[in-house]
Amino acid sequence: MGKVLLGRYVPGDSIVHQMDPRAKLILSFFFIIIIFLANNWQSYVLLLTLTIGSIMAAKVNFAFFIKGVRPLIWLILFTVLLQIFFSSGGTIFWRWGPFNLSYFGLINGAYVFCRFVLIIFMSTLLTLTTAPLEIADALEKLMMPLKKIKVPVYEISLMLSIALRFVPTLMDETAKIMNAQRSRGVNFGEGNIMQQIKSVVPLLVPLFVSSFNRAEDLATAMEARGYRGGEGRTKYRVHYWHTSDTTGCAVFVIVMLILLFVRHW
């Protein structure tokens, strides 16, 4: 725990926190799409400015974002190296078998790196400023049209929100069971592969048993509280589309237009 920052909500009251989760979700997807339009340094500077601006508007400590990149750093470096050594063009500095170190390769590597980092920053911004439940809510709203083709949207979103609600509970439970089994002489994460697989059994069996018990209790409690399926329920949580949401969307659209203008055709 603590290391993976993707999916950790930090409460606050900035403009970004107060935006409609639907707007934030749409804009995050929108950003991921338009980033593929960027192909020269001007366009990357533009997107970087947008990202930094959004982060500043959210008033969240920048350290969170650096930490968000860290778990994925090997994946990023691997991809960047592939780009560098396998693309050719421009001045070639070095060559060995199928490997090239070319001017274009270096440039492409830098772009890929920027693309990764910006996407991670933006999605980290979404999860840092939006409670998991709000994301689930936004997904429900955005999936509503799918109800026409008989997708059980309500049920899916309730499942999602209950799953999110129980993540910390299960993490707690896992830590407790691990402590109990370590006290009985299990060494997690030590020894050869076979020993490691064996040491997982005393963790997984109790975890399954307790999860099933919890699920049963929860089903009983939900039934006792009158839950009879998604149809006909009212909603406590509503979201209002504020001016700030419209402004946010407008900013992103303008950025896209500028992007189309500055990018290399």
Partner: peptide, 17 residues
Amino acid sequence: NQFVGANVEDDVAFGLE
């Protein structure tokens, strides 16, 4: 095991919904 909502007010609202 009977806390359905993601936070306190959501949980109270669950039965009302």
